[in-house]
Simulated scan of single mutants.
Amino acid sequence: MLNRYHAIADAIALLFSPYAEIAIHDLTSKTLVYIANNRSQRELGEDSNLSGLQDDYDLQVIGPYLKRNWDGNQLRSISAVLRDDRGDPIGLMCINLDISVLENAKAALDLFLVGNVLQPQPDMLFHDDWQQRINSFIHSWLQQRQLTLATLNGVSRRALVEALYQEGAFKGKNAAGYVAKILVISRATVYNYLKNIKESV
């Protein structure tokens, strides 16, 4: 009956190839009966080292949890209880995903992004960088309101332009055109917003 799960194991292994190994254990014989993409160098028929699962009828998923492979690579694993037509547990499908490649990538990114040699922005270059100040203000304004540029509508765009105006963002040359480009609206629309804002002050 566990044969019906072989195709699922193969499909998962193909989807996450070459990093996922899927093992199916028989709870009756407590042995490994199928393995897709064998990365652990296990053999069919060997002891599964499982016990007690037949007695827990409510158990569905175990994990995720961490394991260490024979080659030292870190695995993130999760196990699903397989059942027969009556709902009784008959097997266990274990998915072992090798995350060492992701850990190495994360370590490389952390090393790059931490930037031990990074220094504060030099005043001589950025003291008059109105574009940088607009970028920072917009990012902060959107974050505070849990918005993105893509989700802005007419009302929120005008509110952002007004906030930028209050911040003095439009003192820079071509600032209106720069803001229009960011908000994906015409320069005329920005000027119209600014006109209305000034009139209402």
Rank of each mutant, 00 (worst) to 15 (best):
H6K: 14
D10V: 01
E21T: 08
I22E: 01
H25Y: 00
L27W: 09
T28D: 11
K30H: 14
N38T: 07
R39C: 09
S40K: 04
S40P: 05
Q41P: 01
S48E: 02
N49T: 07
D55W: 15
D56V: 08
V61S: 02
V61Y: 01
L66A: 08
K67L: 14
W70M: 12
D71N: 15
D71H: 11
G72M: 12
N73I: 04
L75M: 13
R76V: 07
I78S: 07
S79F: 03
L82W: 13
G87L: 09
L92K: 05
M93G: 00
D98T: 06
V101M: 11
A107T: 04
N116K: 05
V117F: 15
L118M: 09
Q121P: 05
D123H: 07
D128Y: 11
D129C: 13
D129M: 15
Q131N: 13
I138T: 01
Q143K: 05
Q144R: 09
R145E: 03
L149N: 07
A150Q: 15
L160A: 11
E167T: 02
G168N: 08
F170H: 04
K171Y: 12
G172E: 04
G172A: 13
A175I: 13
G177E: 08
Y178V: 08
V179A: 11
I182M: 00
V184P: 01
V184H: 02
A188C: 07
K195L: 03
E199I: 01
S200K: 15
V201R: 14
V201Y: 13
